[in-house]
Amino acid sequence: MTQAYRIFVWTSTKIFFSSILYKVMKIFISLIFTLSVFVPNQFLRAAPISTSPKQLAPKLLTPPPLSVVTPKKLIYTPINQGPYFDLPITYNSKVKKWVSFYQKNGRRDFKRWLERSSRYIPKILPVLESKGLPKDLVYLAMIESGFSPHAVSSAEAVGYWQFIKPTANRYGLTTDWWLDERRDIIKSTIAAATYLNDLYKMFDSWYLAVAAYNTGEGRIKKLIQRHNSTNYWTLAKKRDFPQETEQYIPKLIAAMLIAKAPKLYGFRDLNPQQQISYEFFTAPGGTDLENLSLYIGIDKETLNRMNPEIIKGFIPQYVSSHKIRIPKGALAKAKRFASSGLVLSN
């Protein structure tokens, strides 16, 4: 009996401690994964990865899709779940610098971008998905314009995706004296998605495609030929590499990291902007947005904000018609306005 009792105690103890060890190891592995994604420091350095999708598999950090179904209105990844990235992630000193900048000196602007994103990301993502592009490209619009249709650069790039006129026209956007479709969220996103898709086909690398979006495909082609390299990080170290483009990819990665887990990086108490419900109305030439807003009973700022592409506030009389956005439920009133004789002559 004594020997059997000893064997029982020894076996039970072994099973108990094996179970405890398994749980401890499971927690430890989970902790290491979380640290490797969110808080890399001098002890956790991620080596730069290849920008070619064909070589990403061994190094690209792509956690499995979330098993928890989140509400559609939720635009941020819950803090207790690992975010999913479909663009390559590299964490180095340049990315770390931009993360720090957004947390400190650039905090005010980045907070505003995060709050705007709830209004615009749901409009951009379906376009990217329809083109078969990575969803994370949505953060290009964030660092380009802060999701503002009124953003204008020193190079006269305009709108959400910061198109210059020649590129905008090449991809089907109208840039007229009264109409600038670079400020139209859907039309400009379709143009940007088409352009980015063309760039990816050209370079077979998202880092290089995005770099070319910033500085032009011709310049990136010349740099590749001159230095005989298709690695973005290698090219970025060269003296003749554009300084702005050298910071562009790190800036994008930093924005992605923070935007997917803002609380983890200290962005709490956000006030996400609500989406505006609208329907389309085919307005006749001569329509003045201020007169229309008074007729349908909304303030002119709201109607202008819904149609930022109409830069003069009216549709010229020589234009037969133009489709605009009006608040949902106002279509009947807008139609009565069109036939009332109140349309502006200009």
Rank of each mutant, 00 (worst) to 15 (best):
I324G: 01
D86S: 00
G159L: 06
K333D: 12
Y171L: 10
N228A: 13
L66S: 14
S130A: 10
L31T: 10
I29S: 08
N304D: 14
L208H: 03
M25Y: 06
N307W: 06
F17A: 03
L303Q: 03
K323A: 12
V138A: 10
K221P: 00
S67H: 01
R6W: 14
I315T: 07
Q317I: 14
L270W: 15
K238V: 08
S148G: 04
I298W: 03
R107Q: 14
D109H: 12
I324W: 02
T13N: 08
I49L: 15
S340H: 10
I224C: 08
P63D: 14
P166F: 04
I79W: 15
Q225G: 01
L87C: 05
Y22N: 00
A191C: 01
Q274V: 09
R305I: 01
L61W: 15
A334E: 07
W98G: 00
D299S: 05
P65I: 07
I310W: 03
K131R: 10
A155Y: 10
L87K: 06
F267P: 03
T282E: 15
L289Q: 05
I124W: 06
A168G: 14
A259C: 06
I29K: 07
E181A: 04
R107L: 09
R305E: 12
V37Y: 15
E279L: 04
R219Q: 08
S293Q: 09
T2W: 02
V319Q: 15
Q42R: 09
D299G: 01
A155P: 00
Y213S: 00
G286L: 11
L125W: 02
L56D: 03
Y200P: 00
K59D: 14
A193R: 01
I89G: 00
T230I: 04
F203E: 04
L179H: 07
V9D: 04
W233P: 02
